[in-house]
């Protein structure tokens, strides 16, 4: 599905390397988690995979379904089936959610949108996510609460039907009930699409109680320093990243 090979990158026009010789391979249907303290490059990784304009690749490649997408623009990556649910979704005044999503569905599926089918899909999504139906006619993320913004990301995900999902700090800004609703929707999507892979970026293991990971990686200073299963996330919760580093000298292997 997705393979990141020896990736090093920096912020454009600033001489500071963020990811350094980073490697990650995610197979079809797997759920991977990247955890790590602030400022280690977690969100940068998610943006790099999506082709964000602020970052520049120094070295390395990104492959998606065996195709080198390193030079692809953001739109083409999305059309290939990569979806980034953003930590802080952008507000766009004047562009309604419904118009935006209708255009996006048309572009991603490469066909004229069947309006009846689209409206039905949207209405189902809104109901499943406990969103108000008027959000469709409001500007993108404008005046939305933190929870509504995250639910809107998941609504887009459900409608656009990606093959690879990146969840960047999905649980930030969500109360317990909203987190439950959002994760149930994602799990339902994964249940319906067994080959879809997920990369979860998170500080806290709380979200992993809802979406169970196959692999947990700890990122530090731009590279993966430890890999384990769900138990590694529980240890991080118990001991913190500093404590894990100490324990890691005996318990874990890179």
């Amino acid at each position: 599905m997705l393979e990141v090979k020896n990736l090093s990158c920096k912020v454009k026009n600033i001489d500071k390397t963020i990811l350094s010789d980073f490697n990650l391979k995610i197979n079809d249907g797997e759920v991977h988690v990247i955890m790590g303290p602030n400022g280690t490059g977690k969100s940068t990784l998610s943006k790099m995979i999506m082709g964000h304009y602020q970052y520049e690749i120094i070295d390395g490649q990104i492959f998606f379904n065996d195709q080198n997408i390193t030079s692809f623009n953001t739109s083409d990556r999305a059309k290939k089936g990569i979806f980034l649910a953003m930590q802080d979704p952008t507000v766009i005044e004047g562009v309604s959610n419904s118009e935006f999503l209708k255009e996006a569905v048309g572009e991603v599926r490469g066909e004229k949108v069947n309006l009846y089918r689209f409206i039905t899909e949207m209405n189902n999504g809104i109901e499943n996510l406990h969103l108000s139906s008027d959000m469709l006619h409001r500007s993108i993320n404008s005046g939305f609460s933190g929870g509504e913004k995250k639910k809107n990301e998941v609504l887009q995900l459900r409608v656009l039907k990606p093959k690879f999902i990146i969840l960047d700090e999905l649980d930030s800004g969500l109360d317990v009930d909203s987190l439950n609703i959002v994760c149930s929707n994602i799990n339902q999507y994964l249940e319906e699409n067994k080959n879809v892979s997920v990369l979860i970026i998170t500080h806290y293991p709380r979200i992993l109680e809802y979406i169970h990971p196959d692999y947990v990686h700890i990122l530090n200073k731009g590279r993966i320093v430890q890999t384990g299963d769900y138990s590694l996330a529980k240890k991080i919760e118990k001991y913190g990243y500093q404590g894990i580093n100490e324990l890691g000298k005996n318990d874990f292997h890179e």
Partner: peptide
């Protein structure tokens, strides 16, 4: 970027 990340 936000719009393009949805395939536009």
């Amino acid at each position: 970027f936000y719009l393009e990340s949805r395939g536009l």
